[in-house]
Structure formats: structure tokens, C-alpha cells
Design a protein around this nucleic acid. Sequence first.
DNA 1: ATGAAACTCTCACCTTGCGATAGGGTTTTC
DNA 2: GAAAACCCTATCGCAAGGTGAGAGTTTCAT
Lengths: 288, 288
Amino acid sequence: MRCRIEGSLLSIGKMAAMNHTTIPTLRHYDKLGLLKPSHVDINTGYRYYDIQQNARFDLIEYMKELGMSLKEIASVLDCHDSALVETILAQKNEQIHRQIRGLKLRHDAIERAISSLERYRKSPATGTISLEYIDRRLIYGIPCPEDFYAHDISSYERDLLYLRHDLMDKGIPQIHTYSVGTSIKKDDYASGIFRADRVFIFADKALEDYHLSMDIIDSGMYACIYLDSYDKEIEGASMLLSHCKSEGLSICGDYICEVLTEFNVFDDEKRGMFLRLQVPVDFSRKRI
Amino acid sequence: MRCRIEGSLLSIGKMAAMNHTTIPTLRHYDKLGLLKPSHVDINTGYRYYDIQQNARFDLIEYMKELGMSLKEIASVLDCHDSALVETILAQKNEQIHRQIRGLKLRHDAIERAISSLERYRKSPATGTISLEYIDRRLIYGIPCPEDFYAHDISSYERDLLYLRHDLMDKGIPQIHTYSVGTSIKKDDYASGIFRADRVFIFADKALEDYHLSMDIIDSGMYACIYLDSYDKEIEGASMLLSHCKSEGLSICGDYICEVLTEFNVFDDEKRGMFLRLQVPVDFSRKRI
DNA sequence: ATGAAACTCTCACCTTGCGATAGGGTTTTC
DNA sequence: GAAAACCCTATCGCAAGGTGAGAGTTTCAT
């Protein structure tokens, strides 16, 4: 015991325990100049704190709880300027609002991802043909600059990039969380001409804020075929078309290739998708 | 141009531009093994990407948008296990809920801090005596283990620490964002005996979840005096008592020392507070 | 073909708020 | 007086890259 100037000086360990913090934290604050021990032994370098310095520590904790960084805290403590505090707090509030909005979006995206995976698990085997009622959907997309069926996969990638650029330019966040679709015009498809018409995303309410000119895909009965690879799309589309013809189903709208899930954890290099090819067929009752 | 194996290989810069990302990011993913260029020139080390690798990049972005860390993404991509994805996503959802709750708490705390600072700006000069109606308040506190008026400031610090420990043990977050008060029993105060009775925090709705046994401080008219330093409390309390006596105000409850703001950006080492000492006085109309 | 501009490489250090050692001194306690 | 507990400095590590420095490569225009 060398130096004992005042009544109750605390070693760093006691100070840490008293404030429910750790020794490295106090050393860190010391280094940053946030909380200098009231006395440091010149010979040993031991730090000794005054119990009154709890006040300063509390203040630091308080500001941390408000979301201020240590640097911001230091600047406030240095400047002795309460107006600065108010400025920073106002900024923090803004920032928190943004963060909450972002987290909500993320939450929605995760929900979509989970149900998409669930759907994948429960979907029929590849090649299965079905007849389903599909609800109305909103899409946003662009005409295909290139007919990717006529070229290799890279032209599909390019078309998709155009779409993503467009979405990015419009400031839409989380563009990767929307599932993608492509379409072929009804008449082309019915004649067996597979020529890409549009590439789009399936939109949801969150996108309404961005004033996109979205299109509606009407509800109705669809003939569908499930596939687990993009490579088989043309083959699948042909099969679907033959099926419609042999069953006497009358095609009444554009063909759509819907990407049900893009969680391609199966094939490393390619865009491996789980697809539902679909084409609306006419079952309408005549109204009298 | 040394190596050109396939048709369309992209340099790292083009790949980055195409995907709205940066070159360091792609290099980073390469290092982590997340996205290895499909070809690397052995002589120059130049990275060349296949356009199909956009798929992989999209997948990574997608998972990032869902809040997964690069390490988690890597493990999913390595394992080829979609169940793992679902597990992680469920965890993420939990985590997001916690984050949102935390942010809301923080937002409330900031609002409180801002109005506290505003209040400070608009408060009367130190020494001002006033008569105010104060609404009902909820408090949670503990009896003072030590009578800090009888000792030095360090015993106040210790009492405050007991309270904080208690709150921490009960798992209450952001304990520093609640303002502190102390009280003296009515009879003690009225007799000029300043003996600390309780130390407490002013609670709010967020604390109701923690099943604390909170006390109520009744609404009513209070004689108050504003002070800007803890050092002056006893002096201020005496003045307030004299004032009540000379004005014929009848004290009808415990004396309270309320910390209006603890944003002590003015004095470095001490706990510098802005205080409102207050004591309830009786103005009740007799009911007939 | 050549020179300049643009591009790319690796390496290493910076950010936040500490936690976790390593290696060596100090204080307290029995 | 010795052991236990405590403390020091210094460095590395974390996540996801950003920002250079210094050197080599490719591309474009002449």
C-alpha cells in the first residue's frame, strides 16, 4: 500500500464489480479518455478510482443506452455542450426509426422465405402436372431486352440484371427477396413459339410505396407443371402445352414461369430454381 | 489477353459493376470462399467470373438481406442443407423481434432524454421557489441502507448502487435511463431532521412487465425549489422548509428530491444534477 | 507498335467495443 | 514469508469490408 491519498479509492477490479462492468471495459474507457482514474500510481501504473466517478460511469452508460457511440460520448463530455447532446439525440431518433423500418422489412422477407421453403418441401415431384386455382397477383417487370430462350443462359442473366438495375434505380430495398417470373405471350405459347416476353417480380404491399406501374395477373384456373431446374424449362413448357391440347384445355392468357424458391443450396454454380410453369385455362361458366 | 477459355468471362470490376457491389467485396467473398471466381489466371492472379455466377451472388445478397452473417451463409452454402436455412431463419426471426423491442425501448428512452433536456432549458433559475401541481407518479425503490445526509457523498453513491444492483438482478434493461429520486419521511422533514428514507427511480409503463412492487406518489400541490447541484440539497431543503412555515403551508407528505436531469455535461468529476426538491402541501377543500 | 489510361494484384492497416490471452509485476491475506 | 489474488502493458481477434501503397496487366487510341 503505497499511495492512499483520500479515504476511499477503488482498485479497477472493485470499480468494475461495483458497476457491473469488466476490467477491460474500464481500461478501454481510460485509453479513450472517457473515464480516467482519479489517481494512477506512477510506479506501478495501477489505476485507482474515486467512488464519485461512478457518476461519470453512469453517464457514459446512460448515453450508451441511448445508442451513442463512445466517440460521440467523448465529444459530448469534452465539449460540455448540451446542445450537442440534443442534436445527437435527434439524429439517433431518426436512425432508430430507419432501423425499425428496416427490421420490419427484413422480418417480412424472412417470413416469405420460410413459407417459400415450406412450400418447396410440400411441393409435388418434378414433372408433376396439376390444375390449380391461383389467386390474383401483382407484378412489376420490364419487357425482355433479349429473348433468352433463343440464346444461352447468360442472356437470361442479363435480362434479370436489367430488371434489378431498374429496381435499384427506383430505390427499392431488398430486391433479392422478391421472387422472379418470366412470361410468354399467350398466342406465342399456344403456337409453340417460346419467345420471352417479360421478366418481372411478384410484388407485395411493401412495394406500393414506390409508385411502380404494376400489372395484374388475374386469378383463375391454371394448368401447372413443377420443375426443379431452369434447364428443363423448355421441355416442361412443351409438356404443359401438349397436356393442354390433349386434355382440350383452352389457353386463355400468358404463360408464366414462376420461381417458387431460389434457395439453391443444391447446385453450386448454376441458378438452381424450383419452378412452377403455368398457363391459365378457361373454365368460365357462361353467364346467362 | 492470355486466357480466354469460355465466351464471356467478366473481370472483377465488371462483375462488381454488374451486381452493384464493389471490388473489395468480391475479393472478400473470394477469400471467405463464398464466391470463388470461375477462373483465376495463374500468372497474374486476375479473377475472372462467369456470368452464371450472378446466381450465386444473388443468393448471397438474398441471405444477407435476411440478416444472415457471411459465416452463416458460408455454412449453408457448404452444407447444401435447406433444413439448416430454416433453422437459421427461425432464429433470425426471434432475433429481429428482440432487436425491435430493444429499439423501441431505446426510442422511448431518447424521447425521455430529449424532453428532460428541454425541461432543463426551460426550468427556472436555481433557488427559485414555486408551487406546482404534480401528477401522480409511480416509483420503485429501496430503503436507504445508509443515511447519506449524515455522511459524505460516497454513501449516496453506495445507496444508489444498491438500487442499481437490485434493478439489474431483476433483469431490467436500460436502468440508467430512469431518473432517480430520494425521499425523507414527512415527520422527519417537518421537524427539520434530514434523514434519508428511500432511494428510488421514477417508473413508467415499460417497467410494469417486471412485477415490481411499485409505490404511488399521489398527485397534488407541491412546494418546490430548483437547484443545479447536489451539494446544495440540504441548504435548499432548509429553505423550502422555512418557506413552507413562513407561508403557512401545511406539509402533508414525504419530501422528495427529484433528479430532473443527470446530463452532467458541466462538471466533470462529480454527479452534477438538476434537482427539484419538493414537498406536498395541503390545499384540499373540505368536502361537505 | 507503342504509350497512356484504366484496370488489377497483394499486403496491410482502419473502423467498434471490447474479450482473450501472454508474460510479468504488485498487493493482500493467511 | 509465501501463496493467492490482483494488476500492468501489449497484442490479437471479431464483421464486413474501406482505403490506401506499390507494383504489375490489360485495353484503347494513336
